[in-house]
Amino acid sequence: MPKFVITGASGAGKSTLIAALAAQGYATVPEAGRQIVAEQVARQGSALPWLDQAAFMDLLFARSIAAFDHTASTAEGCVFFDRSFLEAIAYGAVIARPAPEAMLQAAHERRFANPVFVCPPWREIFAQDRERQHDFRFARTDYAANIETYAAAGYELVEVPRAAVSERVAFIQQRLGDLSGRQPSNPAGKR
Rank of each mutant, 00 (worst) to 15 (best):
P2S: 14
K3E: 08
K3L: 11
F4W: 07
V5C: 14
T7H: 00
T7N: 00
A9P: 01
A9G: 04
G11M: 02
K14F: 07
S15P: 02
L17Y: 04
I18N: 13
I18P: 10
A20T: 04
L21H: 02
Q24S: 03
G25M: 03
V29T: 09
P30I: 13
A32P: 00
I36Y: 06
E39F: 13
G45W: 01
G45P: 08
S46C: 15
W50Q: 10
W50V: 11
W50S: 11
A54G: 11
M57E: 04
L59C: 10
L60N: 14
F61I: 06
R63W: 07
S64P: 00
I65S: 01
D69F: 13
T71L: 12
A72F: 04
A72I: 09
T74N: 06
A75R: 14
A75I: 07
G77C: 06
V79P: 00
V79S: 08
F80A: 09
D82G: 10
S84C: 10
L86P: 02
E87P: 00
E87S: 10
A88R: 04
I89F: 07
I89K: 05
A90P: 01
V94S: 02
I95C: 01
R97L: 06
P98Q: 02
P100A: 01
P100K: 01
E101H: 08
E101A: 13
E101K: 05
M103Y: 01
L104D: 02
Q105H: 10
A106Y: 13
E109T: 09
E109N: 15
F112L: 12
A113R: 08
N114K: 05
N114M: 02
V116A: 07
V116E: 02
F117C: 02
C119E: 01
R123Q: 15
R123P: 12
E124V: 07
I125E: 11
F126K: 11
A127G: 13
D129P: 04
R132T: 05
Q133K: 09
Q133G: 11
D135H: 00
F136R: 04
R137I: 11
R137G: 14
F138G: 04
A139P: 05
T141I: 14
I147R: 07
I147W: 00
T149D: 00
A151I: 05
A152V: 05
A153R: 03
A153I: 00
E156D: 12
L157S: 05
V158C: 09
V158L: 08
V158P: 04
A164T: 15
E167Q: 11
V169Q: 04
Q174H: 15
R175F: 10
G177Y: 13
G177H: 11
S180E: 14
G181T: 11
G181R: 13
S185E: 15
S185G: 08
A188K: 14
A188L: 15
G189D: 05
G189Q: 12
G189V: 12
K190E: 12
K190F: 15
